[in-house]
Computed example of a mutant assay.
Amino acid sequence: MATPAFEEIAETFDFLDDWEDRYRHVIDLGKAFPPLPDALKVPATKVEGCASQVWIVPKIEGEGATARFDFAGESDAMIVRGLIAVLHALYSGLTVAEVGRVDAVAELGRLGLNEHLSSQRSNGVRAMVERIRRVSAEAAAQ
């Protein structure tokens, strides 16, 4: 269950043969991702378990399982900022109930990220996905 924005990233990755080109594309996605205001870079929005500094700020419109999920985020590492942009493409616009049904490991696996990220980066992505899923599950239960 991937969004059109994520499918576009997957298609671009299919087109790019070289992992270095894919890596640059992820960094470019991060550069294009809107910055997070400093006022939102607080302990409550910081994602623990990431080697770099990462902040995720959920935005939920509506109530219950049909509420729409979105988030803002940022990192002090360019590749991680790009990974935030990839996760944004994967989840943004889904209902909070749909967020819980996304198989992030499989979807990100389509991009080959699991094979090319360090274990620390992979742990960071897992921590971001867990935060997104937890926030969505809490919103769906309201």
Rank of each mutant, 00 (worst) to 15 (best):
M1Y: 12
P4L: 09
A5N: 12
F6P: 06
F6M: 13
F6R: 08
E7I: 07
E8W: 00
A10P: 00
A10G: 02
T12R: 15
D14Q: 15
F15T: 12
D17F: 14
D17G: 15
D21P: 07
D21T: 08
R22C: 10
Y23K: 13
R24V: 14
R24N: 11
V26A: 14
V26R: 05
I27Y: 06
I27N: 10
L29R: 11
L29M: 13
F33S: 11
P34M: 10
L36I: 06
D38T: 11
A39T: 14
K41P: 05
V42G: 01
A44C: 00
T45E: 09
G49A: 02
A51Q: 13
S52Y: 03
Q53N: 14
Q53D: 14
V57Y: 08
E61S: 11
E63S: 13
E63T: 14
G64R: 04
T66A: 15
T66K: 12
T66M: 05
R68A: 13
F71S: 02
A72Q: 15
G73K: 04
D76A: 02
D76N: 13
A77L: 06
A77K: 06
I79F: 14
R81H: 05
G82R: 02
L83K: 07
L83M: 14
L83H: 07
V86R: 08
V86C: 10
A89I: 10
Y91K: 04
S92T: 15
G93M: 07
L94C: 08
T95V: 10
V96P: 01
V96L: 04
V99G: 04
V99A: 09
D103S: 05
D103Y: 09
D103M: 04
D103Q: 05
A104M: 04
V105A: 09
R110N: 08
R110L: 05
G112R: 03
N114M: 12
E115V: 01
E115I: 01
E115F: 08
H116G: 03
L117Y: 10
L117I: 15
S118F: 14
S119C: 02
S119D: 13
S122Y: 07
N123G: 15
N123R: 13
G124N: 03
V125W: 01
R126F: 00
V129K: 07
V129I: 14
E130S: 12
E130Q: 13
R131K: 11
I132C: 01
R133T: 12
R133G: 03
R134K: 12
S136D: 05
A137Y: 00
E138I: 10
A139Y: 00
A141T: 04
A141P: 02
